[in-house]
Design a binder for these strands. Structure first.
Lengths: 246, 246
DNA sequence: CGGGGAATTGAGAGGGATCAAAAAGGGTGG
DNA sequence: CCACCCTTTTTGATCCCTCTCAATTCCCCG
């Protein structure tokens, strides 16, 4: 597997991501151990594993999850290109979460102590790590609001919009008319929204019949975003702000 | 209001918190603007407010929350002494959360740019901020698992244990036989667990009749922690690991 | 002693869960 | 190109956990 040099990292080219200084880039390059590919459905981090490496998701989708001992599973959030993975591990008393690839995935691999080296070597990169961690927490916050207080219909609408936006942001901000890639199965959606598979399906069909979304060939389109946003009681401007990359 | 010098901070004395170097302490002291007291029920951060200051919770309990436009409210997590508040604000497209004092509360106040100054001035403090942020995220993760996949009974049990542990950790790790302070009302619990007030009450009564917890004089006791843990399907060792403080 | 928030409790309704099947897709080896 | 198998999507019938609504009771405090 040929590891892309950071300087040629395809993600850096996207307007979604903030630029790096030369020093920052050099440090990241220095700390990067290798690249890793994981097949769809395979684990990137095994649940309960204490000490793990860190990753930056280069390409593909993945998800973080936790399970109860009887098998009930909750997806905590989805991971897209640019997401930094593994910071939460080991900083908690509670059992850690697992990470599984949703599509075939490519990742940059860092040793765990890269977390400290980033802070020490380039405080601005430390700040970026904090930024990414805080940002991910706010995604989880949103999910928590959904699970706690939104109806099934509202939850599905919220998830569709938020995921659409994230996927679109990686596509130069707008989709090309054919929608954005959407590799999430109904089972995944159900696990993320705290619903049963059957009811997730029924809810999805209802929204589809109302013309609120279209899913074909693994691509998602939202014909009437306004209506969906109203249903979801969502706010926040259209384009997400540029974000740091590690 | 007489601001305690950081060097005399009562929290530093607790075994729960990791020690600081002199330089770290000096930096924090330098960045600390003042101390602030907030009455129970009053806002520390108003929901939706974009740019805000940062706080360290010195004393008392508070909570983070979000609401939908029709008033439905979700508590994201509870904040106890030592928690660092406000990092997530402004790092997200989504609307920010609010923070309200649950008891009378005392806080250290920092300007927002202290976040960057901490990273720049003492990378180890930057690392601590990352640690605290990641740790808080894992608390939210746990809540998300509860809301998504646990029954009402399991949720209440989980919340009781987790809050008990956090409160006890501030009490030198063990309670003194009279239990730990527990200022959370049933309404708060309901809002945190995604349940209605009425059903939260019914569930609580059921657990109480089974002798799984006792609440008197605002103090919580868990007569049979093992049984509660079994109910909650919780794992993780007893004492939480020492944590950094800002 | 009065007043207001918090805790309790009961009756009735309903949103989602469960269980069970059938229908669609999508590879893939022959 | 077809038969076959496995995953994903749909749909129907039925059940029950939890919500809503409405009173009461309790408790703290001025």
């Amino acid at each position: 597997m040929d590891a892309t040099p950071c300087i040629d990292c395809p993600l850096r080219a996207l307007p979604l991501f903030l630029p790096h200084t030369e020093e920052e880039l050099a440090l990241v390059q220095f700390l990067k151990r290798r690249e890793l590919s994981v097949d769809a459905g395979e684990a990137v981090i095994h649940e309960g594993q204490g000490e793990t490496r860190l990753f930056t998701l280069l390409e593909g989708w993945a998800y973080r999850f936790k399970t109860l001992s009887d098998g009930r599973r909750q997806i905590l959030n989805f991971l897209l290109a640019g997401d930094f993975i593994g910071v939460q591990q080991k900083m908690s008393d509670a059992a850690a979460h697992g990470v599984v690839a949703l599509t075939p995935v490519r990742l940059c691999v860092f040793d765990r102590d890269a977390l400290w080296e980033l802070h020490r070597g380039q405080p601005s990169m430390g700040f970026n790590v904090t930024w990414l961690t805080a940002h991910e927490e706010s995604l989880v916050d949103d999910n928590l609001l959904s699970l706690g207080r939104r109806s099934a219909e509202e939850r599905v609408a919220t998830a569709l919009i938020l995921l659409y936006k994230r996927a679109a942001a990686l596509r130069h901000g707008a989709d090309d008319g054919r929608g954005v890639p959407f590799p999430v199965t109904q089972q995944h959606l159900a696990d993320a929204l705290g619903l049963s598979l059957a009811y997730t399906n029924k809810t999805l069909r209802k929204l589809e019949r109302r013309g609120l979304y279209r899913l074909a060939d693994g691509r998602l389109t939202l014909p009437d975003p306004k209506a969906l946003v109203r249903l979801a009681d969502l706010y926040g401007d259209g384009r997400p702000p540029p974000r740091p990359l590690v």
